[in-house]
Each structure stands twice: as C-alpha cells, then as structure tokens.
Design a binder for these strands. Structure first.
Lengths: 223, 223, 223, 223
DNA sequence: CATGAATGAGTCTTCATTCAT
DNA sequence: CATGAATGAAGACTCATTCAT
C-alpha cells in the first residue's frame, strides 16, 4: 500500500539522492538505522523503514550490510570506538593525572551524551539482549573500553607512586567507572530528561570515582 | 493481574487448593520463562517452548499472563522486588552504618548473583531494549531500587552527621552504586566466569563505593 | 491486492471448511500442493497459493509440514510408495511369470499414468533438480523402486531356471525398466498427449523389456 | 541470439579477433554456469557466482545471454547437439548395423558420461522441472534426439529387411533407449559412483536394447 | 563493450495470539 | 480451566535484472 504509491509514478528515489551524494550510502544507511533504532527500538524497526529513511532500496541495505544484526553491531562498534578515542585523548591531555577523570566525565556526560543521545540509546539499550552474536560483539567492545580505562588507571597510579590493594583493583575500578557512566546516562538522560544537571553530575561522578579510586590504594606506610 | 482478579471475588470452599495449584502453575510458567529467557534470550524463546518446559499448553500461558511481554515484566519486577527486600534488610541489620555497603555487596554479588545467574541475565540483559512497555516497567523498577538506595544513603549520612555537596548527590550516588553492581555482575559473571573472585570484588567494590561516598560529603569545616 | 480483499470483510475461510471436513487437513494440503506443483511447477507455486487452494492459512501449512521442500518430498515418497505397491501386487498376481511385465506395463501406463497425470509430473519432473535434500530423497525412493524390480526379476529368472550373464544384470535390467517407464510417461503423456495410444505402448514396451531381459540370460548349453 | 545479431551486420576489420574474444567470453560464461549448475544446482547458483567464476561482471553475463534461463537452455541444447552428433557418427561408422547400438552405448556411457559428468547432471537433472520455457526447450531437444534414434532404427531395420509390429514401434523403441541411457547415467553415475562398471553396463545395456528391438520385429512368416 | 552498484518485487517462514472444543 | 490447532500479519532476505558511468 505504502509501497505501491512509492513506485507508482516512478519517482526514482535515486535521482534526488545522486545529486546530493554519490558515495557514503553506507553512512547514510547507518545513520538512518541509528535514528530508528534509538527512536523505535531495534526489533520494532524494519529494514524497509531504514531503507526509506536512507532513501535507498531494501536491497541496497543488504548490499552494504550482511543483515540487520550487522547494522546494530557496526553502530555499537563505532560508538565504542569513538568513546575510546575520546577518553584516550582526555587522559593524554591531562597527562594521566587524577584530573583525567574529571575530564572524561565532562567529555562523556557533558559532551557526548548531550550531543548524541541516540548513540547512548544504541550503546546502552538497543544493543543489549538482542542475540547471541550482538551480545558477543558487545562484550568485546565493552571489554576493550574497560581495559583502556584499566590501563589509564594503572598509568595514573604509577605516576602518583601509588599501589592497589590487589591485582584485581585496577580492572574492577574500570568496570565500576563504566557502570557508573552507563547508569547515569540511562537514568538521567534516557529515562528522565535531566540534561540541565549534567554538568553537575559530571563533576560529582568524577569526585565519586576519585574517592573510590583512592580507597583502593594501599595506605602508604608513614615514614 | 486482570486474570487474577477474575477469581478474586469468589473465594469459595475448595479455593485454597485451587489457589495453590494456580500459583504453582503460574510459578512453573514463570520459572520456565526465566530459564529459557536467560539461556536463549527473550526473542529467541517462543511461547511454545515455555509451555513445553512448564508442561502446560500454550493456551494456559495466556490464561495466566496477558502476553509474552508480561512474562518478562513479571520476572523483572520479581527480581527487582527481591533485590530491594534483600538490600533493605542488610541496611536495617547494619543500622544504616557505613558497613551496610559492605553487606549489600556481599548479599548481591556473593549471594544473589552466584545463586541466581539467570535472574541476573534477565534483569541486566534480557529486559533491556525489548519494547516500549518493558522499558517503561524497567525504568520504574530501577527507579524504585535507586530511590531505596538513595534513602538509605541519606539515612546513613544523617546518622553520621554528614552533609552532601549538593542535593543531587544522594541520588547520584545511588545511581552510581546500581551501575557498579550492574556492570560487575555482567562483566564478571555473565561475560566471564570469575565467580571465584566474587568475594574479593564484593569487598573492593564496597570500598570503592565508600570512598566515592566520602568524597561527596562536604568537608566539615574544622572549627 | 488479492490479499486485501481476502480479509477485508473477514470472511473466515474456516467456517466453510469445518463443515466439510474436520480432519485430513494434511491431505488437503498435500493434494493442493500436488495440483499446483504439477500445473505451475514447484518453484512457481507459492505457499500462499497452496494454502488458498487448500482453504487453509499459510501458517497451517507450516503446522503440518516443515517447509515447502517437505511437501514435495512427501508427495514424491507417496507416489513412490504407491508405485511399488502396485507393481508388487502385479508381480504377485502373475506369480512372477514373464507375464508380470505385461501387467505392470498396463498397471503403470494404462492405469496410473492416465488416472494421475499430476503424480507423473511430480514424480518425473517437479521433483528433479530442485535441491540437494529433494534429490537425496528422490534417489532413495528410486533406489527402492529399482531394487523391488530387481528382486522380482531375480525371482522370475529363478522360476524359469535361467541365469544372467553377470551379477550386474538383474539390477541393470531394473534400472532400464524404470528408465523406460519414466521416459515413455514424460514423452507420450507430459510432452505430447498420446493417451489414445497408451495401451499399445504398454503392450510394446512390455515386449521390449521381455526381449531385453531374454538377451541377458545365459544361453543354456543345448544338451 | 538477439545480442549476437547486434554485431552480425557489421563484420569490419579487426572483427576476427573480436569475434574470437567474444566467443571466448561467451564460452567461459557457459562453462562457469555448467560447472556451478552441476555442482550446486540451477536455483542455488546465482548470476553473481557465475560471473565471478567466469571472471566477468554480472552485466557481461546479461550482454551475452538474455537471462539465467537462457544459460541453462543453451547448455542443454549444446549437450543435446553433441549427443546427437556423436550418435549419428557411431551409426554411420557401423553402417546402420545392429552393432551401432553397442557403439553408441560405449560412446555415451563409456566416453561421454565419464568425461563430462557435469553435462550429464545438466542434461538429466538440472534442466528438469525448472520453468515452462526450459521444459519446452528440453522437450524439443529430447524429441530431436529421439527422432534421430528412431530414424536410425528404421534405417537399420530396413537394411535387415525387418518390419515392426506397429507404426509406433520405431519411435517407442527410441524413447525406450533414451530412457535407458538416462536412468543408467543418473543411477550409476550421479547417484552412485559405479564408474568402474561402466563398460560392463554399456555392453549389457546394448544387449538389452537389441533384445528389445528384436522383440518388436514382426516374425517373418516362413514361406 | 564492460562494469557493478542499485533496485524492489517476491517468498518463505516465524510466532504471538485466539478460540472452539 | 485446559488444550493445541489454526490463524495471518509481519519481516527478513534473495537475486535476477537494469543502467548510468
């Protein structure tokens, strides 16, 4: 029905498109998928809807992506990559001082989350619990992200001449930090619209992390 | 719920037995759903499979539950309820001292997660990103859980005569705590099998939280 | 289009059906598939068409049959079974004399082919070259059919006190006979309508086979 | 065909080379199609796969062939042509004596089938039951093949001064012979690998045919 | 002539849900 | 209350074919 009208007068979707962009179909499709997955949910979004929004045929979606799952996985990986890059840069800029935590809090909450709420929805909601394959890829993305943070934590501790109570600590702290960001983003941005308070939260969550971190350092024996 | 009311108005003679039987069926079905959702994923599990495992007909599933979604929601709510109850008890037992954090860490990670890995899978994975309705219910469950923790935090701080840097802090801390538990459970129990280290993690995550909490108290000005 | 009208006024296909027959849906579906496969070809027939002709929903087709392939396989096996049964009876009736060949020729060409041209189309045309699985099943059906004939040939030769030139001969003769019937059926009934000459052909093809058979007996040394 | 004509009208200077190149391409594609159709089946083979194996683009396939069907038809016709040519030569060589049957058996089973098993798969399996058009062409190819054999049979009988029991006989015998070869090839070469016994089968099948043929000659009345 | 990206109609298949028994 | 056969809407995915470059 919708379908029929679409091709009725042979209004080629192509013409308009080709004028605007002759490449980057791939990105257009991904962007459309991101928008719809975030808006309607992964399962509630059909390939046809994605194709329509991207001004492309369903066949084209399958030309660029193996299947629907791959769209979700690609989006997730891309977001994971961006987050890692952004975090890495912040840690670099602050030369692996404690201040890095404050910076990544602002970068993530104050910048990324506010600018790309759909990416947050994809990363923390739509990519969860969809299929074995998606979950496996999600795990890998999150493990990489966590290990990045763990490495940064180790570097920071070394620069401060501190040691952790156990070998587990650095990774555990990284896991905690990821969990904190995740839940703050979901709770305050996806579930409620508290974007006005985001800066405050960035500030306080950084304090929280630093306090937590400090508590897992071994007390240096006084002279 | 709708269905349950049907029989509510009439509590006749042999009702007791009937009620127990009904509750049993209901629970058998829920248990089957929990097992399968956790093992194969919500979408990959069909009503027929649930009915088979519960040894009832598909029609019976629909007698006790409005639809598949309701199964998931009920499971989620049940788990949320159990967690809140358990946490509440721990805070009570420790009389809202700082030690409560250590206790809930052990209760959650050392006890709940190890005993009911399927519930963890349902609560933190399968109930995420499935539909608008599930997400709405999930939000409510999580908000309740978070507010419980927030209340406990406020009580604890009051008992210690401490004040928070902002009004946001108590809730934010609660959100962080939920996030920490969530991610630790996923990372170390669903994604990897690090059950051997769980006690250590409970210990350290409690320290982490306490450190974080402390950092969001206002420094009492020394007189 | 066709679709829309079908359900527009909610004219339940069920009502009419239930009145006529409350069982044997399975056979109705198979019969519909047979008719359509023979008329339009296996690939050119959609499940929906089969369901329509059987006055059943598409879902019902999948309730009784795993997939489209299974419909074809079942049809093929059924036909194979019928043919073997019919042949077996003819050989029995003629007490494994040479006359059996004449009888099966009449039974197959004069009876079966004329009565069930669609079965011939399924057995010798539509079930060929469709997929690996169909081909495998087809092979098994044909091998059984061939071995039945081989056994009959051996019995006949024994009764006549004859021996074959080689061990291969009985099976080879059976293979030839199957080939002869197959091609006659295709050539004279599917490709041309020579049903008028069928009896003549049955007669002559039996003679041909007998001549062939005789030529593969060892010449008994004259005393 | 349509396409070929395009260049037919203009046979200019460097045409020779072009023609050879074109023919090469054409054959390369046909060869690729033959290989894949035989290996994976007609429907399971996509144009893209054929193009890949032939190291051309999908567009090129459509330059040389109207559609996928035409590829199959061309292959089938080619094989039919080769078989007729080969048979004709054998009959010629044996001067239309009874020995011709032995010769074509060896030529077909001992030579053609062993050398070109893919052609056998195409001719007797993949080209069956695919579409109305393919079936129509298949019929024509087989009818030609059959009539060739019929003609040879008539010639042979004339040379021997024999007469057939009815007018139908020569064609019927031809049909039988085709069926015999077809089924032997499928049964012993496509379904089982009995290539070791092929010579024996050629020998015996020829005997079978001769016996059959003889049985359809009218008994010459002794003076 | 060659290319290969783009098309989109066409189909199979699934499965939550219903309801007559 | 229980059953499970029946439904049919919905969607993913394929692939022969086209055509601008």
């Amino acid at each position: 029905m919708t379908r029929v009208n679409k091709t009725d007068h042979a209004v080629p979707r192509r013409s308009m498109r080709r004028l605007r962009e002759k490449e980057n179909r791939c990105n257009t499709i991904l962007k459309a998928a991101e928008t719809l997955f975030a808006r309607k949910g992964y399962h509630q979004t059909s390939i046809e809807e994605i194709a329509d929004l991207a001004e492309v045929s369903t066949g084209s979606v399958y030309f660029y992506f193996k299947n629907k799952e791959e769209l979700l996985i690609k989006l997730m990986q891309e977001i994971g990559h961006d987050l890692r890059k952004s975090m890495g840069e912040e840690f670099q800029k602050t030369e692996f001082s404690f201040d890095g935590f404050r910076m990544i809090s602002f970068a993530f909450l104050g910048d990324f989350c506010l600018r790309y709420p759909e990416k947050i929805a994809i990363f923390f909601r739509e990519s969860v619990g969809q299929s074995v394959e998606v979950e496996e890829q999600r795990k890998q993305v999150f493990v990489k992200l966590t290990l990045d943070i763990k490495d940064a934590i180790i570097k920071i501790s070394e620069r401060q001449g501190k040691h952790f109570v156990t070998n587990l600590s650095p990774e555990l702290i990284a896991v905690c930090i990821v969990g904190i960001y995740e839940r703050i983003a979901c709770y305050y941005l996806l579930w409620q619209d508290r974007s006005a308070d985001v800066m405050q939260m960035a500030q306080e969550s950084a304090s929280f992390m630093l306090g937590g971190l400090n508590n897992l350092f071994i007390e240096d024996a006084p002279h």
